[in-house]
Design a binder for these strands. Structure first.
Lengths: 196, 196, 196, 196
DNA sequence: GATGAATGAGAATTCATTCAT
DNA sequence: AATGAATGAATTCTCATTCAT
């Protein structure tokens, strides 16, 4: 969010909140400005259009993704530990950032415009690539089983993550997300690590 | 679709198409009627409101889910074969029903109304329960490994299915979905079946 | 209603009912046909347009007015008795014909079309003329005081009648209309008859 | 109208005009905005809904009623003079405020909504109560005859007022309303004042 | 930076009416 | 007589955006 002013950040965060709470159809300039407490027209001082706000949301997502990847890369541990960290951190992140969790997996929201849908796909692919890379390195050094493709495992791990978050959201956050994350990690570990 | 008239079925299917192609924001009565080739007001002979059309879509989803479950239940085979069939058939179904594939995993689309969001969650839960049940019965007779919970495996399998379909859609259907389904099944089989 | 078929009479009466209950804005072909229990298009077998139905209502009003005048004319009594009869009968009629009472004094309802507004004015004038004539004849033979104009008395009597019926309607028929009619007559008698 | 902005007052007055000229069915946002010379959507900056505009009209009526009552209350004269003033002023007011005259007695116009119909009834009752009070005080000091109830006289006076205004309106304002008011007052005076 | 007023395009829905059956 | 399907015009209201202050 370095590139965004205070007000811009406020607008982006409020927009995410609004989408999370009421869906994209309720993300209107009117609702947005009302919640922030400024006039509708004031929004246009900070973003030239509504599309720009959505692009802002995506840039926030990308930043958070880059941040996590940088952290993982700098970690000097085994692939198993890396995968564990990555999973648990993402569950932890979502559990304290409900609004983002409600929006980040909803590719539907960004279908209005080519630029939006391309960017969200790009973020999604990048996120998956991180997992694939970790798994591949684990396979190379014999920590993870080699008889299944890293790509497929990545589908299963990311897919489960996304699905659990969706359940959590649809259940109106009644599920304990942290606990679910730990259960998922145990399962993944059991299924793919090689015991010696 | 037994309960729906010809025209109602046409409206429901066209609505799914429209959402699939252009997103829910483009599902307007105008676009709908234009594509069907009737006047906007004619739609209201067949559905009392737009909400009613969305409920119609969900009732179609539920019917298709019930149909698949009935088929699976009546199959006299092993859990392994059942799980395989279920997975491959769903991939096959989606690959020939692109529009439905684009809509059925988009819980976001049905957030306008309580009735809608509750129903889509219900369908989602029911679909997952089928997988859980198959896995449990496989675990009971020793076909599937017992050291991981059926629930977690179901998350991974369904999650992967959903994620692959999403990729397929965002890639504008360039991926070969059938092939992807087979790859996923191979992976799942390798990971969870017990070799003797 | 001699000129109207059974079905036409049913439509006219139902239209009056609808207006009485929910106001003219709720008098739609849809509501009308629904209440009668036929299809919307069936209405057009019996009336060529909605305007025609409104004209039918007015023709019913006119008939009822003519009927009352004929009765009054044929009565062989004093003007005092005639005025009393006219007043009490109208109150009695309205109290058992709530729907008509709710509509007949609402000139507003018939402003869509010249023909309608002219006819309702005509009926109104004719109704008043009857009272004026009775009062004049009473003045001529010395039963009613002569120091006020018949026209003005007619305004006061008819005005009170209309206003009381309006009150009755707005109070949701909680007032006893018959009793109110008697009170009004007593007052009118006290004010305008000449004691000897 | 203190609580309303300039534009809001303009909208309310134009709405009254429109109803007066063409009936409530022609009071549409389109007609309203066209006559004012702004876009349809601009109306919604000033009133949140059409119902709100109608409530605005009623609040204007109430204010005008309160104003008149305040004037009457502060007058230091006999009940006879008060009743005369009240009558003549109302006729004068209507004769220069044709639009309001065309709307204020049309309870039918406000039947769309409970709030509307309750308010118009309330205004009507309040208006009548003023007359009843004047008459009662006149009876107490012997200026008005005591053998008829104040309530009944009020019905007759108010009823006549309303009926004369209705005639004036239906005759397309050809009658001289001021003159009619004077005639009515003469009649009322003759009928109810006690000569000594 | 912010506001209030305004705009034009469109949204869902309703209505009277028509027509083939 | 009656129906079901359709139509086009109109209605209320929303939305993103602009502009003068």
């Amino acid at each position: 969010m370095a590139n965004f002013s205070k007000r811009q950040q406020e607008i982006i965060n409020t927009a995410i909140e609004l989408i999370a709470e009421k869906g994209i159809q309720q993300l209107t300039i009117k609702n947005l400005s009302k919640r922030i407490g400024i006039a509708e027209s004031a929004i246009y001082r900070h973003f030239t259009s509504k599309l720009d706000i959505l692009l802002g949301i995506l840039s926030l997502f990308r930043e958070s993704k880059d941040q996590m990847n940088r952290e993982l890369t700098s970690m000097q541990t085994t692939p198993t530990e890396k995968l564990k960290q990555m999973l648990l951190r993402r569950f932890a992140y979502f559990s304290t950032n409900r609004a983002i969790a409600s929006v980040i997996f909803s590719e539907e929201l960004f279908r209005n415009d080519r630029r939006l849908s391309e960017q969200i796909y790009e973020i999604m692919l990048a996120n998956q690539q991180v997992i694939i890379d970790i798994i591949k390195s684990g396979q190379k050094i014999g920590e993870f089983r080699n008889d299944v493709s890293a790509q497929q495992i990545a589908f299963m791990v990311t897919g489960a993550l996304r699905l659990i978050v969706t359940h959590w959201r649809l259940s109106e956050f009644k599920i304990d997300l942290i606990e679910e994350g730990e259960k998922l990690w145990e399962t993944v570990k059991t299924l793919i690590t090689v015991e010696d």
